[in-house]
């Protein structure tokens, strides 16, 4: 089945598809990923903070049962496979966006799938903060809120950036998957042409572009994390 991949006709055909569809698909994948990540962080960051500060012995304990409910919801959402989650949140998607198909609509399930993941990442980052620093802040008269935004988050910022990078690359993968049921972008192209129409060259190219996007996100994220970390000695300012 691969014999005619590089025949002149199929090359010409593939080029036509690439020329007409790829720029838009690339852009769709990019903005869906970035927007979904942004919303996932918007929800996941405060939630991750709550998981750390709200527990017994934390800086701002909240009732045990609330913590249990939050943990349960996060665990449930994290254990539902993404494709099934997409279908399950159709009603919510319709409520928010007005439709369940299309590029914009795919942002909703992406956020629902990603924010619990982000919350766990944030939780593990914040647990790494030296507890002596929190004690220092308390002894200096900081409020719990001041401890969160002046100590815990700034001190774990480099590792938060690393973990947000993990999140964005994971969300990119999910966004490609969302192409199966109505989402746009490179994933949709890969499935439509590769799976339904046997245009493997187009599929491979879509996959290669996805790989390149992951590489770019990852290396930008890593650079940023290293650059912001002031614990590393002798760095260029």
């Amino acid at each position: 089945m691969f014999t005619d991949i590089f025949s002149p006709e199929s090359l010409a055909e593939a080029w036509e598809i690439i020329r007409t569809q790829f720029p838009m698909a690339l852009w769709e994948t990019f903005y869906v990923t970035v927007l979904a990540t942004a919303f996932a962080i918007l929800i996941g960051l405060p939630l991750g903070v709550l998981l750390v500060v709200g527990e017994k012995g934390g800086i701002r304990p909240i009732p045990r049962w609330i913590m249990a409910v939050i943990n349960f919801i996060i665990n449930v959402l994290r254990s539902v496979p993404f494709l099934i989650l997409m279908i399950l949140v159709f009603p919510l998607t319709r409520l928010i966006i007005g439709t369940t198909v299309g590029t914009v609509a795919s942002i909703v399930p992406l956020v629902i799938a990603a924010f619990p993941f982000v919350a766990r990442l944030v939780e593990s980052c914040l647990r790494e903060v030296n507890p002596n620093l929190i004690e220092m802040a308390q002894s200096t008269g900081a409020t719990p809120f001041q401890i969160i935004y002046k100590v815990m988050i700034p001190e774990s910022w480099p590792s938060l950036i690393s973990n947000f990078t993990v999140a964005i690359t994971t969300i990119l993968g999910y966004s490609a998957m969302s192409g199966i049921i109505g989402g746009g972008g490179l994933g949709k192209i890969a499935i439509n042409y590769g799976y339904y129409r046997y245009k493997y060259l187009v599929m491979f190219l879509a996959v290669i572009l996805l790989i390149i996007l992951v590489q770019i996100f990852q290396s930008v994220g890593t650079k940023l994390a290293v650059k912001t970390d002031k614990r590393l000695k002798n760095q260029a300012k």
Binding site: L133, E135, M136, S139, V151, P154, K230, R231
Partner: peptide, 14 residues
Amino acid sequence: TMIFQGFNLLMQKN
């Protein structure tokens, strides 16, 4: 106010 064995400076702040 208090000072500590481990200094407890904010490592990400100058």
